[in-house]
Amino acid sequence: MTRLRVEVLRDRCAGYANCVDTAPDVFDLDEHDIAVVGAEDYPQDQRGVLERAVRRCPPKAIVVTDS
């Protein structure tokens, strides 16, 4: 089964931290207050929470794709 790749578009991220609130196991903020992703990919059962994080990101800085 394919896994989900999560990428943060650093130029768009503005440190809202909504993603961290939504999926604290996946997202954190670095020392520049920009979101970072914890792992290379995630299982399919994380799709729901990841899509919610995408939706909660106002500058649309999160991209989730099937790897």
């Binding site: 503005a14 440190g15 809202y16 931290a17 909504n18 207050d33 939706r55 909660r56 106002p58």
Partner: peptide, 18 residues
């Protein structure tokens, strides 16, 4: 869908650091 009532503030840049 992202808040308790439509119109509410759900996102602020630099919410944590700022």
């Amino acid at each position: 869908t992202l808040v308790a009532t439509a119109g509410e503030l759900f996102g602020v840049p630099h919410y944590r650091a700022g």
